[in-house]
């Protein structure tokens, strides 16, 4: 049963090997050059960013000891014990924190909803296949670009001065940034639609809004919803740090706990945030898969 394949003679094999090496040499040289450039850039940026490996190595213990400290009670009758030995003491502020967490989710939700509405209203004007006027189109595109380039925290810092402290600047900052990010994605979806149904409805004398309603929307709606859900998850995470600058949500308590060294609170709040974000991540992923499979059904 065992068959042995005939082996090439050594001289013929050598010729083949030579040809192979010649073929890959140029490619290998190019890869080496590329790697050298990347390493050079790495050193350059390491110098600019003041990378200090000695400091990192010397203080690396701090990273783990920080986790050690936030996992230990530091005051009261339970001082010195691990936090999970007394969950009631660990999560002493659960009621307050859950309310703040709900507020954070609401900030994320309102920001996503407002941003998605804005993006929805503007994206058809930014799509090359629907908007014949190039000035308006590139104007809307530049607007989207501006909104998604400026980080939401920066918008929040500016809005706080205009609207005062609280969740309103947080919501508006997230909404503006979301409008930029979603607007670009929405416009790309619209640019990829099948134009036949658009031509069909134009041929029956439909107006612009009727064309969008009956020819474009059915093709793009599930993609829009999917992107919006993805954004919602990102925005809840973003809303969790809005409080760092005073724009509402749970971030306010978190940064206070970090700055004032309330170690057990830091771990409790981080755990709550991670749990919330994970749950929302899993939930939206399910919904998105359902939406996409509905799209693919004939």
């Amino acid at each position: 049963m065992a068959t042995s394949l005939p082996r090439l003679t050594d001289d013929r094999l050598a010729a083949l090997m030579q040809a192979y090496h010649d073929a890959v040499r140029a490619k290998r040289l190019r890869s080496m050059a590329f790697v050298c450039i990347v390493i050079g850039l790495m050193f350059l940026s390491g110098w600019v960013a003041q990378v200090d490996l000695f400091k990192l190595v010397a203080n690396f213990g701090n990273f783990f000891s920080y986790f050690d400290r936030i996992m230990t009670f530091d005051s009261g009758p339970v001082a010195g014990q691990r936090v999970w030995t007394d969950p009631a003491e660990w999560f002493w502020g659960l009621r307050k924190w859950l309310i703040l967490l709900a507020d954070t989710i609401l900030i994320g939700y309102l920001g996503t909803a407002l941003g998605a509405i804005g993006a929805f209203l503007l994206c058809f004007s930014a799509a090359a296949n629907l908007m014949p006027n190039p000035w308006l189109r590139s104007g809307v595109k530049r607007l989207f670009e501006f909104c998604r380039t400026v980080p939401e925290i920066v918008f929040a810092l500016i809005f706080i001065i205009a609207f005062g402290l609280g969740p309103i600047p947080g919501v508006l900052a997230i909404a503006l940034h979301t409008m930029g990010a979603l607007g670009k994605l929405f416009a790309e979806v619209v640019e990829n639609i099948d134009m036949k149904s658009v031509e069909g409805s134009v041929s029956t004398g439909a107006s612009f809004s009727q064309t969008v309603r009956f020819a474009v929307l059915p093709q793009v709606l599930s993609n829009f919803a999917s992107y919006t859900l993805l954004r919602f998850e990102i925005n809840v995470r973003g809303a969790s740090v809005m409080g760092f600058v005073g724009a509402g949500g749970i971030g306010q308590d978190l940064i206070e706990a970090i700055r004032k060294f309330y170690y057990a609170d830091v771990s409790a709040l981080l755990l709550l945030i991670i749990l919330t974000v994970t749950v929302i991540d899993l939930g939206t992923e399910r919904l998105r898969h359902a939406l996409i499979s509905r799209e693919e059904r004939p």
């Binding site: 600019v48 960013a49 003041q50 990378v51 200090d52 400091k55 990192l56 203080n59 690396f60 701090n62 990273f63 920080y66 925290i153 995470r237 973003g238 969790s240 740090v241 760092f244 978190l254 940064i255 970090i258 981080l270 945030i273 991670i274 749990l275 974000v277 994970t278 991540d281």
Partner: peptide
């Protein structure tokens, strides 16, 4: 999943504890 659940800003705060203020913490 756990790493992704924490925002960059929070990581920055944690790393500042280790290497001090400055761009290295940002990296």
């Amino acid at each position: 999943d756990g790493i992704r659940g924490i925002d960059t800003l929070i990581w920055a705060l944690l790393w500042i504890n280790v290497v001090g203020l400055g761009p290295f913490a940002g990296v």
